[in-house]
Amino acid sequence: MKHLLILVSSLLFTLSGMAGNIYKVASPSEFKNAADKAVAGDEIVIANGNYTNWESTVNTNGTSTKPVIIRAETPGKVVFSGDVNKPVFQLTGTYTEISGLTFSGCNVFKAQGGVLIELKNSKYCRITACTFTKNAAKDQFLPIVVISGKGESNRVDHCSFISNIDNQELQVKITADAVPQHSLIDHNDFKDKDKVSWKVFNGGECVQIGQDPVMLGTQYAYSIVRDNHFTRCNGEAEVISNKSSGNKYINNYFTDCQGELVMRGGHDCLIDSNTFKGGTGGIRVNGTHHIITNNTLDGLPIGIRLMYGMAKGKTEIGFYIAASDCLIKNNHITNCTTGILIGDSKNADWTGKFDTKKYPSRTMQDVAPFNNTLTDNVITGTKSPVIRNEN
């Protein structure tokens, strides 16, 4: 019995040594004090309630086995709202997780860097099980969640983005000096997004990986976007907008969306095992060496379309790059008007529609897709299985 008591006491001592501190906070100042103290294994618990005028930078550093956790006391009962001019939460450290928070009815302004959550230069940080609903961007091209800087291996997962207004939902920000590496965006729900009110209905993507396809599309981000659901996402023509290279889009579901999964810029991306049902389109492709495999596309005007460009390859500059050297294999296309269109936007004239000083590109979209391989695709119940418009 004596030895058993010693063993139990030793075990309890070990477990107590493993447990971190728990800081319960109910104001920005209390949160800052807790964040300044927090170390690996600690938790910062935000008390249930409604919060406005909250701005915070969090430079906590956990470990792979003992992350710093910032969480709601009760998921769904910690709600942030009101005007947002600076990041509500900006994570700049390592192995920090933020979970269970709700952002509802926020008005986000660009001038001072307004954003709901930003992972900036962070590594192995995570946003999970948070809800973003009925938040409005008050400036065009403004995201509500951002991964930016020279960070790596950050994750956004199991979050809900519902009925947000005039905004981009989630952005991986790429500049000439900083490309976040190996971001993972998975198991999120994007739902009921109305068309944006901005000029030419642009700036309403659900997910955007890169912002400048013309000059920075060759930057490699190696982001993975997988196992997400997109339902009635009608913000603009691009539900997902790829504008960088080396990314993967795997096993996502698109239902009744007024937009497409778009390779707007960049090269060497994988588009695999995604499902599209209803809506205005499936997969749109510019750029080179993309692999498009095992996708299911049902009830669309066009399942997959390979686009004309102003230039070709990875070294020429063009506002659009012609689709080339892509593999389109093992896709199942059914009940579409056109299954695969090779050569869309032929001879489209972009004169006066973009800044040729900023983007030294030809304005005529007259370079045809080339060297693309179509094999083992199953196309049924479709008026025109394959249309070639390359000449």
Score class of each variant (00 low, 15 high):
residue 128 T to N: 06
residue 175 T to P: 11
residue 143 P to Y: 08
residue 226 R to Y: 05
residue 339 G to T: 08
residue 186 D to F: 03
residue 258 Q to Y: 14
residue 62 G to N: 07
residue 298 D to V: 02
residue 48 N to K: 05
residue 274 N to R: 06
residue 139 D to F: 05
residue 36 D to Y: 11
residue 177 D to N: 12
residue 65 T to M: 10
residue 201 F to K: 14
residue 132 F to T: 06
residue 330 N to A: 02
residue 287 G to P: 00
residue 191 K to W: 01
residue 135 N to K: 06
residue 79 V to S: 01
residue 93 G to L: 07
residue 282 G to T: 03
residue 101 L to S: 09
residue 366 D to Q: 09
residue 348 A to F: 14
residue 99 S to I: 03
residue 341 L to Q: 09
residue 79 V to C: 02
residue 144 I to R: 10
residue 270 L to D: 15
residue 85 N to E: 15
residue 135 N to Q: 04
residue 187 H to Q: 10
residue 272 D to S: 13
residue 221 A to N: 08
residue 205 E to R: 11
residue 330 N to S: 03
residue 5 L to C: 15
residue 346 K to Y: 04
residue 160 S to W: 05
residue 175 T to F: 05
residue 106 C to M: 03
residue 159 C to V: 03
residue 138 K to I: 05
residue 101 L to I: 08
residue 250 I to C: 01
residue 182 H to P: 03
residue 224 I to Y: 07
residue 260 E to H: 02
residue 362 R to L: 02
residue 282 G to N: 02
residue 131 T to A: 09
residue 132 F to P: 05
residue 285 V to K: 02
residue 26 A to V: 04
residue 131 T to M: 06
residue 229 H to Y: 12
residue 22 I to L: 11
residue 293 T to Y: 04
residue 177 D to C: 04
residue 178 A to C: 10
residue 240 I to T: 04
residue 307 M to Q: 14
residue 16 S to V: 14
residue 271 I to K: 01
residue 283 I to P: 01
residue 300 L to N: 06
residue 143 P to R: 06
residue 51 Y to I: 06
residue 145 V to L: 07
residue 77 K to L: 02
residue 60 T to Y: 13
residue 328 I to F: 04
residue 123 K to Y: 12
residue 80 F to D: 03
residue 215 M to R: 15
residue 59 N to M: 13
